[in-house]
Design a protein around this nucleic acid. Structure first.
Lengths: 228, 228
DNA sequence: CAAATAGTGTCTTTGAGACACTATCGT
DNA sequence: ACGATAGTGTCTCAAAGACACTATTTG
């Protein structure tokens, strides 16, 4: 390292030049019971003690943002696999945290119900999935500016769903088209026409030779996602 | 502040818990000479001395991200007015800056040529507008990961332009439809059909009674943006 | 009137939306 | 046979794309 760099670094790192802290906060979504749900944790400490908040963590000095996200996924949702997530927005208002200056980089992660099978609900009374609709429409208070972040995420997921592929994240490896349609209907929060939905999604999926069975009606063919 | 908060704060702020630094980096775009241009500054210091980089700054401890952006706009581009800008993405790789850990929140700002009239090119040999196309297509090296950020911004601006209103940021208060069409053609990087363009944009603009004059061809009506 | 750019009318193609019909299971 | 859900054919309508035409200025 150059001498000048050292000088710069020393000056910048000195105490008189305080830095903001950086955290990641996650919108971890899943779909079950025909609802979009999001993982929230009950705060154990002040400020906002006992209120719900997004799972998050501070970003370590030698840790990328993505790694911090993965660490939260593992710690708070018991998800060890690599799952889909994407960055949403960075919130930087000066007083968003009453303790100190914290800049929060928000991410959303989409998890299929299957991936959450080993998410132990009993052990995690502090971390639970709540219907997004309830959070947004009721006036339950949420810690920090996290309600705003949840609303922002809800809009983003709706927009993303319009352009299709993201909904597959909520489905298992194979799925029926009625299942896929249901996912879109929940994400977009509106009814879709069967025939039109199928026309639109057909280039994105490929048939398998499997069918559902047992139900008192015509079986449904299973599809898988087509990667092109 | 609670006792517990103090304890937390003390622990977190202690030296053994080093924090990343936070910066904002700006993609300041303008349009002239029928090209999309971006403001770059020549680095005076190592690392990457004499190379081009995005204008940016560290975020102060009592300064919001937006305020940091405005500070850069003023300092590097002499823009005192409030102009349009939006957050793009936050870059958090551990080694993106060789000196120390810096997380960069990138923004794009769109400036009309008129707003830049008092941008003194002679005084600013270190800050200049460069054609985006040249930067992306040539293999000039750009400091840090800023080339990647520039490419990311170029895609975003293209997507945004598809959904319309953003292009008005590059136009003056009133403008002709051929001028507006030109803006879209540059942003989208493709030719458009006159008749179709006009059909699409007509709900977004309103006529004035003014016309261009002096050119050796039919005068063009001036329009202004319609806010609805 | 010729060159140049502004501005309009209309045909074709594509895709979203709506609806009615047929197919196949369990009971 | 019938209730229930899976799956298909096709009409309508609106927007995107393509092209040809008319309009108004200066020199």
């Amino acid at each position: 390292m150059h001498e000048k760099d050292k000088a710069f670094l020393k000056n910048y790192s000195s105490d008189k030049f305080d830095k903001p802290s950086v955290a990641v906060d996650l919108l971890i979504y899943t779909l079950y019971e025909d609802e979009l749900k999001i993982l929230l944790v009950k705060r154990a400490e002040s400020p906002f003690k006992d209120m719900l908040s997004l799972p998050g963590t501070f970003v370590g000095i030698e840790e990328s943002l993505d790694d911090a996200v993965k660490r939260v996924l593992k710690a708070k949702a018991q998800i060890k696999e690599d799952i889909y997530f994407e960055q949403l927005y960075t919130w930087g208002d000066v007083n968003r945290d009453p303790r100190m200056r914290i800049i929060s980089v928000s991410y959303m992660a989409l998890v299929s119900a299957g991936t959450l099978e080993n998410f132990n609900r009993d052990e995690n009374i502090s971390a639970m999935f709540y219907p997004v609709k309830d959070i947004i429409e009721s006036d339950i208070e949420i810690a920090f500016d996290h309600k705003k972040i949840i609303e922002y995420g809800r809009e983003r997921i709706k927009n993303k769903a319009e352009y299709m592929p993201i909904a597959f994240q909520f489905l298992e490896e194979t799925f029926t088209l009625p299942q896929a349609q249901k996912v879109y209907e929940i994400l977009l929060d509106k009814k879709l026409y069967k025939a039109n939905f199928r026309k639109k999604i057909s280039p994105l999926v490929e048939e398998t030779e499997e069918f559902t069975s047992g139900a008192a009606h015509r079986p449904s063919r299973l599809y898988r996602r087509r990667y092109t």
